[in-house]
Design a protein around this nucleic acid. Structure first.
Length: 566
DNA sequence: ACGCTCGCATCAGGTGGGAAACGG
DNA sequence: CCGTTTCCCACCTGATGCGAGCGT
């Protein structure tokens, strides 16, 4: 099906109990990197799209239903050409992408900007054509959708929901290591296609205060499912889908206000496109899931052999390393960029290497690495540009669970400076002891309460402070955009690295304490604490000690200097 | 005494793998 | 027969509750 049937009526009449677990103390107030980790789409700035983005690469709206014709739809655009993970031209549905990206010219409607927080991770999957498991009881998405929103009316109420629509008219099959079309898609699928964020409706201030995570969203192939229907989106296996974010201004009761022109805006991020499957087809995807989903840690059984061996060994492992070695380490597909190696590998204890993103799948049948590089970089620049326009790129801290990790993953793509900035979220889970961000992964209130005071960064003081107009804070990003200089990037990175060291140490210390880990002794445990340790290790250049003492107060000063007084 | 923090144990639920079942 | 789906398994993370220790 091409349109989220009943999307309007569904959400407008639904008022769910706010899920407190999804709330977070929002520590995103001072992080200057938020925009850097997500694509921003600014409805009110169409000019910037044409100037900095490549509209020709915009993916289509994937069948935006006629009922929403009056809505404003924004599709992300980036330097990937045609749908990068799709070997076939994207389905154009009704109307072209360009026509649908027509933006309001500064009317009274909201001017929301949406960031896909965990875009780096999405890109990694997209590179291989993302697959999402669907089961009868429902399976969570991984990566899950996570957004930061800016530009909403602080006091107005909004429903925020995700709709998953058919992305192309084909039925897909994985054959010969590639996804190929296989007949026509079944458009007669039924069932819920919309997932309303459990905190809907809520004020613009609320939505902008924290990352909006759809981690609880589940995908199912059970059309007849009646229970948990609000948490389940019904899909068909072997069909390609495109999630879309909708922001609808509603009354305080959660009823859509139809009295206004532009009350609904939709955002499409092509990199979140995926094929629904009942079993993984592409081992690249399987490996990425295992690597990055903490719930799948149990399958990292060749952890030691993979991540403690010398670099050249790890990257070209023997198929006999593990029973799953052929699957776990697709050696030919993985490579390490020198820069990344220097910055994050060589300085790490070998045994702790795992979580600092040791490799990036270089190629796959669906997308060239080179293209992806450019895409990542351009996306980053674009984001900064948005921020540079006073659209608060900086103050939304992307504490996406894997943000730190995946920012690191971008390093080979020339975004060295980002890695450490976003490394607050070193834990996979937003609500880990290292970040007060919960964003839908369920909160650990006790941990947050205990740990937060020790964190150098503080929760965003107020909703309004979340997106300040202080252009100074995005200056480094702007500079990077303008110069594109590796030297500049590197310089900035170093500042960030040292600046973040102390807060990392604080968190690490706390974490180790809580997790009963030795601050000094090595650990093979692959835990958030370890992630922190690794990142800390990489942040504290050439430092073999993770102790707080190793990190000077100078670093703290620099930290605050950067974040509060650039 | 009271409240808070921390350590620990337990349980619920999320993972992918793999074998079996299903269906065209 | 072959591709797809379902189910169960082991492993993992996160949430929660309880008691001990500590400070006020």
């Amino acid at each position: 099906m091409l349109g989220g049937e009943g999307e309007s009526s569904t959400f407008s009449s639904t008022k769910e109990v706010v899920d407190e677990r999804c709330k977070s103390p929002a520590v995103d107030g001072e992080d200057p990197t938020a925009g850097s980790s997500g694509t921003v789409y600014t409805p009110s700035s169409a000019g910037r799209y044409s100037a900095s983005l490549h509209l020709g690469s915009v993916l289509p709206p994937a069948g935006f239903p006629p009922s929403t014709a009056g809505r404003t739809h924004f599709s992300s655009a980036y330097q990937l050409g045609q749908s990068p993970g799709c070997i076939y031209p994207p389905y154009t549905g009704s109307g072209s992408a360009l026509s649908n990206i027509t933006l309001p010219g500064g009317g009274p409607g909201m001017r929301a900007q949406v960031y896909l927080c965990n875009r780096p991770l999405w890109l990694k999957f997209h590179r291989h054509q993302t697959e999402m498991i669907i089961t009868k009881q429902g399976r969570r998405m991984f990566p899950f959708l996570s957004f930061n929103i800016a530009g909403l009316n602080l006091t107005a109420h909004y429903n925020v929901f995700v709709e998953v629509v058919l992305a192309d008219p084909n039925h897909w099959r994985f054959q010969g290591g590639k996804w190929v079309t296989c007949g026509k898609a079944d458009n007669s699928s039924q069932g819920n296609k919309v997932y309303i964020h459990p905190e809907s409706p809520n004020t613009g201030a609320h939505w902008m205060r924290q990352e909006i995570s759809f981690s609880k969203l589940k995908l199912t192939n059970n059309k007849g499912t009646s229970h948990n229907t609000s948490q389940m989106i019904v899909l068909q296996s072997l069909h390609k889908y495109q999630p879309r974010l909708h922001i609808v201004e509603v009354t305080e009761d959660g009823v859509e206000d139809i009295g206004s022109d532009v009350k609904t805006q939709s955002y499409t991020f092509p990199e979140t496109q995926f094929i629904a499957v009942t079993a993984y087809q592409n081992t690249d995807i399987t490996q990425l899931k295992i690597d990055h989903n903490p719930f799948a840690k149990g399958f990292r059984d060749n952890y030691d052999s993979m991540y403690t061996a010398p670099e050249h060994d790890r990257l070209t492992p023997s198929p006999t390393d593990s029973p799953r070695a052929h699957q776990i380490v697709p050696s030919a597909r993985y490579t390490m960029q020198p820069l990344f190696q220097d910055q994050f590998v060589n300085n790490l204890p070998q045994s702790r290497f795992y979580n600092s993103e040791r490799a990036v799948p270089q190629t796959n049948s669906l997308l060239s690495h080179q293209t992806e590089d450019g895409a990542s970089q351009r996306w980053f620049v674009t984001s900064m540009q948005q921020g540079g326009n006073g659209t608060n790129t900086n103050n939304k801290l992307d504490l996406t669970p894997y943000e730190g990790e995946y920012s690191s993953s971008l390093l080979p793509y020339g975004i060295k400076s980002l890695s450490m900035q976003t490394s607050h979220a070193l834990s996979y889970y937003p609500d880990s002891p290292f970040t007060t961000m919960s964003a839908g992964w369920g909160s650990r209130a006790a941990y947050q309460r205990k740990v937060t005071p020790s964190l150098p960064w503080s929760p965003r003081p107020s909703p309004t402070a979340g997106f300040p107009e202080d252009s100074n804070k995005v200056k480094p990003q702007i500079e990077e955009e303008v110069n594109g200089s590796a030297g500049l990037i590197s310089s900035w990175t170093e500042t960030q690295s040292s600046a973040l060291s102390l807060d990392k140490a604080e968190s690490y210390s706390t974490a180790c304490k809580r997790r009963r880990l030795s601050l000094n002794g090595p650990s093979t445990e692959d835990s958030p604490a370890d992630i922190k340790c690794e990142d800390l290790a990489s942040a504290a250049t050439n430092s073999s000690s993770y102790s707080k003492e190793a990190l000077s107060s100078k670093g703290m000063a620099a930290y605050y200097s950067f974040y509060t007084n650039p």
